[in-house]
Amino acid sequence: MKAPRFLYVRVASLVEALEVLAEYGDEASVLAGGQSLMPTLNMRLSSPKVLVDINRIDDLKGISLDGNMVRVGALSRHADVMTSPIVVEHLPLIAQAYPFVAHAAVRNRGTFGGSVALADPASEMPACVLALNATLVLDSKAGGRRNVAASDYFKGLYETERRDDELLIEARIPIKAAGEVSAFGELSRRHGDFALAGVAMHGTVANGVITGLRPVYFGSEDRPVLGVATAAAVEGKGATEETFAAVNVALGNDLDPLSNFHADAATRLQLARVLTKRALTSMVNGGGVV
């Protein structure tokens, strides 16, 4: 199918982008990597009046280390974030997650910010920014810049704290501190597909004991979910059968997975439990992909 008609504007700067968004609001769609937007256009599932192409705003690209923070420009391509030495060294969770993000050609074009802004409930980067307690920077002509904690950003199915006149411009992600460990697990039907279940977790491990865990589940509900009860069940514990038993109960409280034709809620919950067990085991062994 061919996309419906729309007006197109390519902005050269953030100011221009915010001008257009201020004028057109919910009639405008922001075109970043286009890897999610373009399919919906080609399927005529969306018909924005205006497409605002932000790809040439150089200020929104780049990954930099800023004190104990990594700043990821919203327009940074997945492929660049994935291979960034800064990310590999300081944000191991994101490096662990990236091989699961789609395929090479999509990662070359898709953007970190686009993925977070869209907030697909089965995608990896929203879960990672939530697990890492990132701050998301939004900007608009009317309201100016504001920082939103990832934990306040995801509101529902493709619903976020971002207003129609706002642009996500950057994620500020705390770097891995000494003693902190990450683990990531995802189960999808085929390589690169959206997750049936996934967990991104980050926390502190000392002497085999986990504290301050932030386990985030994706491919479960309408948005990435921080497993609060699960974290509590793990707090101060090791990766033992006893912990796993407690986690299994806690996860049942944390998650109320959606059912669809790819997998029902019971399957997703079972998979989340298995992934959590494996991720916790990985955490006490230095973390990694499970």
Binding site: L31, G34, Q35, M38, P39, D53, A105, V106, R109
Partner: peptide
């Protein structure tokens, strides 16, 4: 819709989905 890869072309040296990139871009 960006799944099959038959449309793969290079844009500025990197492979992309040609069906998910506008000509105007």
């Amino acid at each position: 819709h960006g799944v099959c890869g038959a449309c793969t072309v290079r844009l500025d040296g990197e492979i992309v989905r040609g069906c998910l990139t506008l000509a105007v871009q």
